[in-house]
Design a protein around this nucleic acid. Structure first.
Lengths: 213, 213
DNA sequence: CGTGATCCTGACCAAACGGTCAAACCTTTT
DNA sequence: AAAAGGTTTGACCGTTTGGTCAGGATCACG
């Protein structure tokens, strides 16, 4: 089985079915907690059939992570150096929170991988991810030095955005447990809160002595 | 084996050794990823001996989580309604970040449990944790309504503090991967950053038209 | 110092697990 | 329509895993 390129439409379809099922199971149970039997069941395929399309359990996991990385990084890549600094960063926050709401399984998959030391994607982190963060951090640093946003460390700012947004996906159970019986609207509240938090933190102080209302 | 009360000093000592080893292994590999053999090895005891002190693998996990919950909640409980609002919250942030630095295994243990749906501590979350959060949220809400801090949703503020601080423990690998080759000082930088972030976000606006420098 | 309670271990077990394989089945191509 | 290539499966295998057990070692105490 050539893993890289599907040759028939059955291959393409079943690959996708398997990855979807694997995402469901891996994100909920972790790599070790997930079993081929449960993935096969979720995919509606037999276990040997799974292993016809992927050489091993680990290969499925790696394929999932690799396929997701780009999608996951896209919002950060979208920060525009020529845009309005505060609005660009707030737009990023909004997009990242939308992803936590719309793709919680992907978020949890990454979270578990990284908590356990990222054994399968460490190179991706130290490679493409670091490169992208370095690039965008430079943009933010320039904004800060120009006084267009408050002087905050860009890397830690990015971390804080990741942390606060992904929290709503990764710690969903805790959030719901504490907010209950507040309904399904807590993502709206989170949007409003994070917008307020980061807008206040980012907006530069006026020139010394200036009146601010 | 009476699980609740150690009757001899050997019992007490070995219980602690086992829990320490279990923390090491569970936090690194997750519940399903950890094996009794690895815990036994880390504890320097035989596997049957482990099961002499705890009736099952799950019992060890539960004992760990239960024993940690109080410690984990202590900093939040320490927020003083009579203190200076901004300083009280900033002190909480500092304490929480210290815990992420000094007790990363505990943080990762909780993180993994909650990511997977908190199957073993859901009642603790919806019970004592929710109660405590509700109590402190009320304090913060009162501060906000009195105009002593900026008007931010207290629950989401607490979430954002948890998220940003625990991020440095739970996603340590990612943080190091991106900050590299920055040395071991990144917790100092994180302290400074979070202090700046939350101070800016929390400090109330001056009265309309007032000069702020 | 001996005796009962506590502590520890090697050998073992059943279930679950990831993975294999030959053979059957289905699709596409000629 | 039949060969060729792609797909699916039941049965099976070796290993790992959580857990048991009978018996031996060690400790506390009268």
């Amino acid at each position: 089985m050539n893993e890289a390129a599907p040759r028939t439409r059955i291959q393409k379809r079943n690959r996708e079915i398997i990855l979807e099922a694997a995402l469901e199971v891996f994100s909920a149970e972790g790599f070790r907690g997930a079993t081929l039997d449960r993935i096969a069941e979720a995919a509606g395929l037999s276990k040997p059939n799974l292993l016809y399309y992927f050489p091993s359990k680990e290969a499925i996991h790696v394929a999932l992570l690799a396929g997701l990385m780009d999608t996951w990084l896209a919002p950060l890549a979208g920060i525009d150096p020529d845009g309005d600094p505060v609005e660009e960063i707030l737009a990023y926050v909004r997009l990242k929170l939308d992803m936590a709401r719309d793709y919680p399984r992907e978020s949890r998959l990454f979270a578990q991988e990284i908590v356990q030391g990222a054994p399968r994607i460490l190179d991706q982190i130290e490679g493409p991810l670091k490169t992208l963060v370095d690039e965008k951090a430079a943009v933010i640093r320039a904004w800060a030095e120009a006084g267009r946003i408050a002087p905050l460390d860009p890397c830690h700012l990015i971390f804080s955005i990741w942390a606060t947004t992904q929290h709503y996906a990764d710690f969903d159970v805790q959030v719901r447990g504490i907010l209950r019986p507040e309904g399904e609207t807590h993502f709206d509240a989170a949007h409003a809160f994070l917008e307020g938090l980061f807008r206040r933190a980012l907006t530069p102080d006026g020139p010394a002595g200036a009146a601010i209302r």
